[in-house]
Design a protein around this nucleic acid. Sequence first.
DNA 1: CATGAATGAGAATTCATTCAT
DNA 2: GATGAATGAATTCTCATTCAT
Lengths: 188, 188, 188, 188
Amino acid sequence: MINATIRLVREVGYAQTTTRAIAQAAGVAEGTLYRHYPDKAGLFVAAITRQSAPITVWARELPARAGSATVADNLIDCLTRLADLRADIVPFELAMLTDPELARPAATARTSEPGPPEFLAQYLHAEQRIGRIRADVDPVKTAVVLLAVLFGLAVPPRRTTEALGGSWPDIADAVHLILDGVGVPVGD
Amino acid sequence: MINATIRLVREVGYAQTTTRAIAQAAGVAEGTLYRHYPDKAGLFVAAITRQSAPITVWARELPARAGSATVADNLIDCLTRLADLRADIVPFELAMLTDPELARPAATARTSEPGPPEFLAQYLHAEQRIGRIRADVDPVKTAVVLLAVLFGLAVPPRRTTEALGGSWPDIADAVHLILDGVGVPVGD
Amino acid sequence: MINATIRLVREVGYAQTTTRAIAQAAGVAEGTLYRHYPDKAGLFVAAITRQSAPITVWARELPARAGSATVADNLIDCLTRLADLRADIVPFELAMLTDPELARPAATARTSEPGPPEFLAQYLHAEQRIGRIRADVDPVKTAVVLLAVLFGLAVPPRRTTEALGGSWPDIADAVHLILDGVGVPVGD
Amino acid sequence: MINATIRLVREVGYAQTTTRAIAQAAGVAEGTLYRHYPDKAGLFVAAITRQSAPITVWARELPARAGSATVADNLIDCLTRLADLRADIVPFELAMLTDPELARPAATARTSEPGPPEFLAQYLHAEQRIGRIRADVDPVKTAVVLLAVLFGLAVPPRRTTEALGGSWPDIADAVHLILDGVGVPVGD
DNA sequence: CATGAATGAGAATTCATTCAT
DNA sequence: GATGAATGAATTCTCATTCAT
């Protein structure tokens, strides 16, 4: 049922993902949904929660990689994985932003536990200590900006890519931009 | 009616913005909506279109500013204005991503005309020619990444800011990060 | 729609009186019900309220009849009318006792205004003052007992009347019993 | 299971007494209900039947009490016990009046066997023969009126008692009213 | 026999859309 | 052109009943 929900949200959008459609896609009766989840929102929250788990699990390992390989490779690897894992979640995140009904309950409540932003910030901070990240940048803000790019790029563009010359940046592009900067260094 | 629509989407969310609510907020009868717009989606598209116009108008002036002031100031100025103008549009953009019903019609049709991404890319390209932007970066990709950050930061975070140390980056932070880079320059 | 509701409750019972049945009986669409009443309970309360009005109006005249005709005639007349008027209300009263959902709202809230019990008690009290009712009875309790009989007799008996010898008492019977008493007066 | 049914009907009302609630209250699985009773209505009828039994048993002794003690004491005693025993049944009786689904099956079938009305009528008739009840009253009608009062007083009043001066009659009040009458005897 | 997950018909309610005035 | 009552399909959710284990 969760799989059916995720598939439907991805394929037809949150607005079209009715309980009837979910039940049909899951091959169960509509009433069966309510034996497993208290209501429709509960089902969606369960879907988000289940999809979110591996992301956090994976992000937890990130700080330990400070110092290994290169910063660019670590970030590209990290963000690429996050992007893959989040691909199915973005429609839900959009739905939660669109429909305040979904944003109420428990799932997001665990504000206490750290998530990808915190782990990414920890990683950047660790790299900073060993001199691979500039000392004067704020690791938390940098982490948030990186994740903002991730989210911004994950959202399907309304304008076709062709209009932009066909060069839609990928995560590696974004990471290199932010690592190297686009401005000419002062003093050159 | 468009104003009422925009206000309602901002205040109560897209999901709660019913035709009845729009009519009431606009001080007209429900049926009157259909004298001016073919259907609800048409009204929303009209609202997006009207709100988008000043953004494009403003972005058009951007390339001409190449060389003046500093790159950082120009970008911060540009992106801050874009952010202000888009504040009312983001809920609609989210709604269009959530409800494919909205994404169908005319609004996206005008792919031919250039929009903010193109103008921002043109600006970056112009700065590149006069040596204020590194020569080896792709102006289009950079423009897209900047706008992705803009969108990513505009979306209200689900995790409270406090959990992140209270330092949610603003546009100036993001511009400086991307201009200067966070990595230690090779050769330092 | 109120008429349809009253008719359906009388004919098929409260439990079977669904919004669909009401709409169909009223010859309107189901959604139309909600243009006139906030919800199903509101419709029922409106039906009860409308049917109750003439009863109270009529009972109001009762105290003024003290002294005229005979006590028995006045009571029989009064209670018979009340019974007629309440015939359509009894199923609703039963429904309100069965389904606590109905008992919540405003309709019954006007506890301040006097109803049939008060007027009946006033009448009995007036008759008491002119010596046509025994001085040692409590007019209020007597009024309540009379109305309790009325309600008890209005409820359709589960046992068929035949089993009881075919003599189901009518209101006149009950009034005479209560006026004259069934016991042999002490001292006779 | 019957006990659970009775308790639930008393506590939460007939409308809220679902099969799931009954099963949970009885500590059995929902499907188990259907091993013992053909359907939900069958379970309710069984509950009514079982609760009704002691009432009839007790009422059977009533006629034999004619001549003993006083009529008032006998009636008050009888009706008080009936009221106690019926307290748990009244909600069911109301439910059966509200939901014709319940009124169909076996329970009403045993019209042949005498019940409280018959025994009460027999008692009154016996008292009549020994001159403690007026000779000109119909014992059956009187029994029905007494039971109607019983039922009418058992139904919780919708108007608060305070509005009526706080004097809600009890069974003794009602018995005395009906025995002695409220009218001034002709010839006084 | 008991279980309890699954069922699916049906309930109340919402809301975009229509159309007679 | 504006109105707003009426519409009815669609939605979420409930619950008595069944049946494989």
